[in-house]
Amino acid sequence: MGLDRAAVDHVARLARLNLSDDERTRMQDELTHILEHVERIQALELDGVEPTSHAVRITNVMRPDEVRPSLDAQEAVANAPEKEDGRFKVPRILEED
């Protein structure tokens, strides 16, 4: 199963990745090539097989509801590319979430 240009663009948009034209072409080829290889799992008989999402069989890991010290506000924004009044500054937001 290959990957058409539209799919590449859709996925790039979902992933917030601008791609140049030749990147789009290269990615389309490479991803198609990789997908052709991984297609081999489609041949496997997997009905009734439980999926594994965790390599460890642990359950119910919880911490007590206790307050721990936070970073101080300056430290929290120390690495911010842009900040204002102790907040992270971002360009205008056009879409609602």
Partner: peptide, 29 residues
Amino acid sequence: KRRILLGTYALSAGYYEAYYGKAQKVRTL
């Protein structure tokens, strides 16, 4: 970028079962 695109594709609507879902079952095997 290649892996982000590949992974986003494998999880995206309509492909999850065929890719990520099946891969998790192979993991069980």
